[in-house]
């Protein structure tokens, strides 16, 4: 029997609660397999004596301390649980049906407000951008119109007048350029187009005055007739004097004369 096995068997024999016949058989087995009886007896004696050592009793203080500690622990737990409970109560209260309804409305209003604000801001921004672009475009059209109207080519000047039709708020510079064209342009078509364009800006008193003053300055019968029609359309009674002055001219075209008389009658 090797040493390790011997050690294990002795330990089993001494401490594994083997009793009676089994214990005796085991002792015999150990002695037969090289364990000295003296050695075994010494171990047995030691084991018995170890067993005889009385169990020490702890002091009463240990028990008192334990129950104090237990009480303290329970209090800590209760406080923690109470804290958890109050948190739970708040949470549950938050989910009361009425409160949930209110909360839902509040959230809905808040979301709607955010969306409306976002939409309004976007819209305003968009409008501002469009207005800026429109304004910039109008400025460009005015510059282009003022440039083209001074060109020698009648086509360019017609283009200039056409562009001025697209200008919604014609300023003094545009009106002056159109009136100047009406009174001085050598081309009849250009002058006729200027009359029609100026008629579009007739809300402006300066335009009306300019058109009236232009009546006596015109030599072309067609322009004269057109101006007479415009005066009737505008019901511009203050133009009657100018129309009468034109009527007094000697070399006046018959059809123009008839038209002027007719217009004067309509205006008076």
């Amino acid at each position: 029997m090797d040493k390790k096995k011997k050690i294990k068997l002795i330990t089993e024999y001494l401490f594994n609660n083997t009793r009676g016949t089994d214990k005796r058989k085991m002792r015999e087995f150990l002695l037969e397999h090289g364990v000295a009886e003296e050695e075994l007896s010494e171990f047995e004696k030691l084991a018995r004596e170890l067993n005889a050592i009385p169990e020490r009793e702890p002091g009463e203080k240990m028990k008192i301390n334990f129950y104090n500690n237990l009480e303290e622990y329970k209090n800590t737990i209760s406080e923690r649980e109470a804290r958890m409970l109050s948190f739970k109560n708040i949470w549950e209260e938050l989910w009361q049906p009425v409160l949930v309804k209110r909360l839902a409305y509040a959230v809905a209003i808040f979301v709607f407000g955010c969306l409306a604000g976002y939409w309004y801001t976007s819209e305003m921004k968009y409008k501002t951008q469009v207005n800026t672009m429109f304004s910039e475009m109008q400025d460009m059209q005015k510059v282009m119109m003022l440039t083209l109207i001074q060109q020698p080519s009648p086509t360019d000047r017609l283009k200039a007048i056409s562009i001025s039709n697209q200008i919604s708020n014609a300023d003094d510079k545009v009106i002056d350029a159109l009136l100047n064209t009406l009174n001085n342009d050598p081309n009849v078509n250009v002058r006729l187009m200027a009359v029609e364009t100026l008629y579009n800006f007739a809300d402006n008193p300066k335009v009306r005055i300019g058109l009236i003053k232009s009546i006596t300055k015109q030599e072309s019968p067609i322009v004269q007739v057109t101006l007479a029609d415009v005066m009737v359309l505008l019901q511009e009674k203050s133009s009657v004097d100018e129309l009468k002055k034109l009527l007094e001219r000697n070399n006046l075209n018959e059809s123009v004369e008839s038209k002027l008389k007719n217009s004067i009658e309509l205006l008076i």
């Binding site: 020490r56 702890p58 002091g59 203080k61 240990m62 334990f66 500690n69 237990l70 622990y73």
Partner: peptide, 27 residues
């Protein structure tokens, strides 16, 4: 508590330390 106290007393040989260690076990 008594077996545990005995266990610690055999290890430390000190009653006060053994009592404290028993408390530590239960804590």
């Amino acid at each position: 508590n008594k077996p545990l106290y005995g266990y610690f007393l055999n290890l430390t040989g000190k009653t006060d330390i053994s009592e404290d260690l028993v408390q530590n076990v239960f804590m």
